[in-house]
Design a binder for these strands. Structure first.
Length: 100
DNA sequence: GCTTTGACTCTCG
DNA sequence: TCGAGAGCCAAAG
């Protein structure tokens, strides 16, 4: 069972529609915290994968950040959902970013 | 129970 | 434009 904090993060992640992405910053602020890093940690643990689309969370500058089990996997998943990428950076980031 | 670490972000040189 | 440093919260050691 995950902690309340993690559960809150997962709830928000599930709201992200396919083909869209969000940032650790947005999630943290939505929770009323500044815990950007803690959000990433919650995703890294993510016991509900792939029920929780943690691969749709990226850094505030549009780069993918990281991914447990290989960044390539994250790239493939995002591309499959229609997100255009330039290596580890999101192309047209402003266009695909999802705002709560 | 304190210290270290991490899928982060912002500011400064 | 790019790299380094500081700040931030939560989980793991």
């Amino acid at each position: 069972m995950a902690s309340e904090f993690q559960n809150s993060v997962y709830s928000l992640l599930r709201k992200i529609p396919s083909g869209r992405v969000t940032t650790y910053k947005s999630i943290a602020e939505k929770l009323g915290k500044k815990s950007y890093r803690a959000v990433g940690m919650a995703c890294a643990k993510n016991p509900y994968a792939p029920y929780v689309p943690c691969h749709r969370v990226v850094k505030s500058d549009g780069s993918l950040g990281g991914y447990s089990g290989g960044l390539s996997k994250k790239i493939a998943l995002l591309r499959a959902e229609g997100v255009e990428l330039m290596d580890t950076k999101i192309k047209y980031f402003e266009r695909v970013v999802f705002r709560f």
